[in-house]
């Protein structure tokens, strides 16, 4: 249960950072926190009390007492995609800084909305 609370709080903190902060790097940190929180939430949905990891590496492991493998597979691919997209986002931020000489989104005209 505490895992649910932790991941909800991580999502809330990330959302707050994305909305309120004006620095571009802080916004990216908020996005990363949201992604981590969602990963933790998905993994903790698949957990079973007293379960073991879904790997038949030792004898005597019972398939009934294993945790759900599908959330783990989904999260595994999501983490790699997060990293590559954040690299792309950091490249965009570096180019924006070179063009506008600032990281403040209030001063970058073409990002206003």
């Amino acid at each position: 249960m505490i895992y649910y609370v932790g991941s909800f709080l991580l999502i809330a903190i990330g959302l707050y950072a994305v909305i309120v902060k004006k620095n571009l790097i802080k916004i990216l940190i908020g996005l990363n926190l949201i992604a981590s929180g969602v990963n933790l939430l998905i993994i903790s949905v698949g957990y079973i009390k007293g379960g073991t990891a879904p790997i038949f590496s030792r004898a005597g492991l019972n398939a009934k007492m294993m945790v759900d493998p599908i959330p783990q597979a989904l999260t595994l691919t999501a983490i790699v995609i997060d990293a590559s997209e954040l690299a792309l986002a950091v490249a965009f931020v570096v180019l924006l800084y070179r063009h506008y000489k600032t990281l403040d989104i209030k001063k970058i005209r073409s990002l206003k909305w």
Partner: peptide, 22 residues
């Protein structure tokens, strides 16, 4: 939470590569 695969991926990607890129 008994997910060693995901733990390895998060430790090597999220804590090393992402931080270096940032």
């Amino acid at each position: 939470l008994q997910a060693p695969d995901v733990a390895m991926a998060e430790a090597s990607i999220g804590a090393a590569l992402t931080m270096a890129i940032y």
